[in-house]
Nucleic acid binder design. Structure first.
Lengths: 238, 238
DNA sequence: CAGGAAATTTGATTTTAATCACAGATTAAG
DNA sequence: CTTAATCTGTGATTAAAATCAAATTTCCTG
């Protein structure tokens, strides 16, 4: 057990998990180290909810390993996935800034290792390093752009367009280019994909089958997709 | 013509249109005045596009009078409205921050009076008044929350829920409470409402008619709606 | 305030995806 | 490696909203 703590701290001090976060990227090494020392580590098993909707959250959370999803539930009980977080992403900063409860829950999609910073440490660092507010502004701005794009995507009538956009997004983030095309390990099940784009599991299946018939993609098991014709997806997408 | 300029400047110096902007609200009067002096005024007729999508935009724009909409166009040529701006709202700050082209166009819904600040002035003020970065962060954070809610809304299966949410939002912003209910002057036509929630004009009509039959709302001409039973809308909404 | 333009409502039909039901495939655990 | 549990794909049916096509209402201009 002691070895676990050592390993975690070592990971942070060596790799400086803070270093992965764009918001902190302009800080000098000493500052990063000083942040790293205050970081609280937490391991979360796949499927666990580590931030609950409607509960006051006083930590900035960094995904050090694994993936997680942020989601809300609609009136009819269906899940709407808002964000997929991967290694290096951080979350919860807005709750600290606005001192509000988390508006959605965050659930581990795989086993996840978290690094967390208390509200106190976070605010202290903003004060000590005024230059990072500009970084935070940038980061929020990019997130805004992403959401605007997502809204446009969800407003689309055509389901092909919506699925294509999602696949292209995942390809960009998780894809590996090979001769045959781009191999993408999907962070979500079909059900998850459905929640992400706001349709049903069955419709996702049908449209993916159709794309496969047209030789645009190829399913490899449940978790992997090979994009054979990226161009075709781009044309559907816009 | 001279009188126009005087009037505009007077409006800014007297009322300090900058004062209406939450982001600047913490600044001392002198700072506000100094900003106001640099403001460029522009009058825009209803229907005119004053910020074009894909064009570099180097002004922070404040809506001093009137209303405007920000929209993008989907692959199939349909319009998706992202924001409705009213008096006191500001826009374009993100383009300045990220030095990017406007990702959407902004069009006047009514005759509009704008106050604009150049990128240069804007950046200078951020530097001189570091405290406003925190205000900007707050403002962006609130906008993020709004978009997240909008995504959840668009992911909803039920159209009642989507329309109800939109009506409640407009009521909150533009509504006037009376004995009979809340009178709301809609900023958008039925067509606009449709673009806002991602459905067709006809479906909007039908659902509004249905809500009227159920005595939940009442249409008064094309621009006004009386919400008789806010509670019912809230129940649809969530 | 009349008249025409624009926006809206309503009806009929078609298209699309949701729903329901189940078979088949993949994954994970022992 | 087997087996159960879970996830996924497909067919049939239903429900819902899009589309197409008027008819009506509202709004604005002269």
């Amino acid at each position: 057990m002691n070895s676990h703590c050592d390993r975690a701290c070592q990971r942070c001090l060596d790799n400086l998990c803070t270093h992965k976060i764009p918001v902190f990227s302009t800080l000098p090494y000493e500052a990063l180290e000083s942040i790293a020392r205050r970081i609280i580590h937490q391991d979360v098993p796949a499927g666990a909810v580590f931030i609950e909707a409607g509960v006051k959250n006083d930590r900035l959370t960094i995904i050090s390993e694994g993936q997680a999803k942020a989601c809300r539930y609609t009136a009819d009980g269906r899940e709407q996935i808002l964000y997929i977080y991967s290694e290096g992403d951080f979350l919860g900063e807005r709750d600290l800034i606005l001192a509000q409860e988390s508006p959605y829950q965050v659930e581990a999609l795989t086993d996840v290792k978290l690094c967390q910073l208390t509200a106190e440490s976070f605010h202290q660092f903003i004060q000590e390093h005024a230059e990072i507010s500009m970084q935070i502004i940038h980061s929020l701005s990019r997130r805004l752009s992403r959401l605007e794009q997502m809204i446009q995507n969800m407003g689309q009538r055509s389901i092909e367009a919506r699925i294509s956009t999602a696949l292209l997004d995942f390809a960009e983030q998780y894809g590996v280019q090979q001769k045959e095309g781009i191999y993408v390990r999907l962070p979500l099940s079909r059900e998850g994909l459905a929640s992400y784009i706001g349709i049903t599991r069955e419709t996702v299946s049908r449209k993916l089958s159709q794309l496969e018939t047209e030789n645009i993609i190829q399913s490899i098991g449940h978790k992997m997709i090979l994009i054979r014709n990226q161009q075709a997806l781009k044309e559907f997408s816009d």
